[in-house]
Design a protein around this nucleic acid. Structure first.
Lengths: 282, 282
DNA sequence: CGCGGTGATACCCGGCGGGTATGACAGCGC
DNA sequence: GCGCTGTCATACCCGCCGGGTATCACCGCG
């Protein structure tokens, strides 16, 4: 009566993304007529029109927009479910931990050491990923736990354990006048016209407009700072990767950053639980 | 290749719950052989054994346990998706707000009034539910937004906006010696042998063991306190429903309670967004 | 050693998901 | 105006797979 099949959702999402039945059918590796029929069936079962078909084009209705979001979530969850199930079967005593490359050296080292000291500890595979990929890894089942940072990372849907809170610092070229200060405020560094703040890409790969250079990794950033082209705000523990041409000055009014251990809220495997227990005693 | 169909998940969940193919088939309204076959197919596609069939009985494997949790989530999400889609279609400018019956009178009244004053405000239907049902309502698409309380309610997976923080108070029989005090601590009330703290049911309807009476609604609780059989800890704004035979004494060391407006993290319908905006200006 | 009860196997059938061919209709260039 | 092109919908056919029935293999048990 009203049970959405993932196949239908897959079809609907593709059509909604393409806004074009023939192209969507092609992407799905099928012919257009059965796809049209499947969507019609879905609409009839829901009793809702999801797509507005007028001449030359297809538009999403409001309800269609809602279903698109829901369907994406469900499909992601389904893909995650197969991964998690397979991993649970293949390796009973093994965990994958996702962390931002180049951050939390210190903390991660301590966590891994403490965990390894536990009797019967699970083997931990560390998965380095860039800029907020941890959430995706965790959500889609490629990782079991992740090191993430509040308030930067989206923690919705995860359970977390706070590990460590620290200040943020401004990273400047060592030769810059501000580098001589012992502390700075956010206003100090946002007001400097010759040092525009660097811009990281958003989820979709685009950049928000602004004067600063567009960057996508840490080494780029480090170089640009050393060249005197930009300034960055990072958390104190990331000073590890700084160069001698850099100066790190504490920021008095930047929000504190808390590194947390995060895991999917339901998944209470005993391996995860044990790691969390270890972490909470650090 | 590796796309879980919700039908399969439904089958698997039922079998995992019954741990019995014939009974599961009956519950699903089908015969046992096709069910067995469906599960086998699922196992083959995943390349994982989910159920241990030995003589006289079926047991879940570790992987099966993982999949059970995932599958439940996916099925819930699918059911929620149909509800949300249907509601989005039937009523473009209408919201359902879930709240705990008997709590937040004051705040809810203010929120509704402020919202009604907005031009083009959505019509709001208030859905009263008991003890932490709001999370379920929100999750399964029966409600669009909910008033919930930190740290009591499970907020994982929701976006929230803090509305109001308040102290908790102990509610005692007015005639009890402690009722004469101007403030109390948690230790004060947990140490009183003649007034064991009442116990609310957990999610699954069971009670954790303890001396206090088992209750399941507020009027019960009120009566038991008035009779001098128990003591309760509630947040200050709930004093509205107290009787004259009750005394409410501030607790100095109980955690503060924050009432929040919560909504599913992805669902950013403009009606919800508008209500959140209104709420944030209260 | 039958007997009841488990899940697994064998086999059949109907419906439905998929394909091809075609239609209805709008926009557009001539 | 008239094709031409490209859109989605309709009509029709077919093979597969999901579901049913009958039965088997196995185990515990009196």
């Amino acid at each position: 009566m009203d049970t959405l099949e993932t196949r239908e959702l897959r079809y609907f999402v593709t059509v909604a993304e393409e806004l074009h039945f023939s192209r969507a059918a092609k992407r799905l590796g099928m012919a257009q007529p059965p796809l049209s029929r499947a969507i019609r069936q879905l609409e009839r079962r829901l009793g809702v029109t999801l797509l507005e078909r007028n001449r030359s084009g297809v538009m999403l209705t409001g309800a269609g927009h809602v279903l698109l979001g829901e369907a994406r979530g469900i499909l992601d969850a389904a893909a995650a479910a197969t991964r998690r199930t397979r991993r649970a079967a293949s390796s009973t005593n093994r965990l994958t931990l996702a962390t931002k490359a180049g951050a939390n050296h210190e903390l991660l080292r301590k966590l891994l050491d403490a965990h390894a000291a536990e009797p019967g500890a699970a083997e931990i595979e560390v998965l380095l990923c860039g800029m907020g990929d941890q959430a995706r890894m965790l959500r889609d089942g490629r990782a079991d736990v992740a090191l993430m940072q509040r308030p930067f990372d989206a923690l919705a849907g995860f359970d977390t354990e706070d590990l460590h809170t620290e200040q943020q610092v401004a990273v400047l070229p060592a030769v810059h006048p501000l580098a001589a200060r012992t502390s700075l405020t956010m206003a100090d560094i946002s007001d400097v016209p010759d040092l525009p703040v660097a811009r990281w890409p958003r989820q979709d790969g685009t950049y928000e407009p602004g004067p600063g250079p567009e960057i996508h990794d840490q080494s780029q950033l480090a170089q640009l700072i050393a060249l005197g082209h930009t300034v960055a705000v990072i958390c104190a523990s990331s000073r590890a990767w700084l160069w001698s041409a850099h100066a790190a000055i504490p920021l008095t009014d930047a929000p504190h950053v808390t590194t947390v251990l995060a895991w999917p809220s339901q998944s209470r495997s005993q391996a995860v639980a044990s790691l969390v227990r270890t972490a909470s005693q650090l």
